[in-house]
Nucleic acid binder design. Sequence first.
DNA 1: TGAACATATGAATATCTGTTCATATTTGCA
DNA 2: TGCAAATATGAACAGATATTCATATGTTCA
Lengths: 102, 102
Amino acid sequence: MPKKKDKSIITEEDLYDLADLFKAFSDTTRIKLLYALMEGELCVADLVEKTGATQSAVSHQLRGLKQMDLIRCRKEGKQVIYFLADDHVHTILQMGMDHVKE
Amino acid sequence: MPKKKDKSIITEEDLYDLADLFKAFSDTTRIKLLYALMEGELCVADLVEKTGATQSAVSHQLRGLKQMDLIRCRKEGKQVIYFLADDHVHTILQMGMDHVKE
DNA sequence: TGAACATATGAATATCTGTTCATATTTGCA
DNA sequence: TGCAAATATGAACAGATATTCATATGTTCA
């Protein structure tokens, strides 16, 4: 039987993780990347075009988002296709946007 | 009749605002402040104690959060009592924490 | 009025973060 | 095999950001 954490207890580490989670959404380039991926998976070249950032900047940011497991990817020939990791990411973005749009 | 924005159209500026919103949640001290305020209003001294940050650091961060209208305050004698601006803030925090706690 | 308390502010500093530039890696194809 | 396309990586730089320290402001009360 797998050990389960008690979700009702908020540790200091949880608060650090929470800040880190939001940090991932706190940069314009990353937001543009995530927002573009809300409509479906895209290769790097498409993301470069959608964000207006350089290929290098996009690649660096994709790495960060991937490390946070907010996005995942698969290879398809020469291309790498990125997509949102799960619905949670979608929901958080949507909720933030609702707030911005009041 | 007041002009209404079309909420279905996402502008580049919206994406900037969205990043800024999440930026407010992206620092450990600010998260601790907001999280403490989820359980109810608190004066600065209490917030200093809960966060473990210095009085000055807390005051600086409170100012930022207030400017974003994520928190508000009222004076009560010598003290200043801070509280979350609205339920939206509460919801965003809760949703983020749900994700962290998987 | 003056002392003590609570909070806010400004400047300086150190750290963190994102971008750029140059280059490396991987893959498909002639 | 060699070249071109797609993406990733590393180092360096610039700008942003959080904290600290010193001090200012505002409030209560004796």
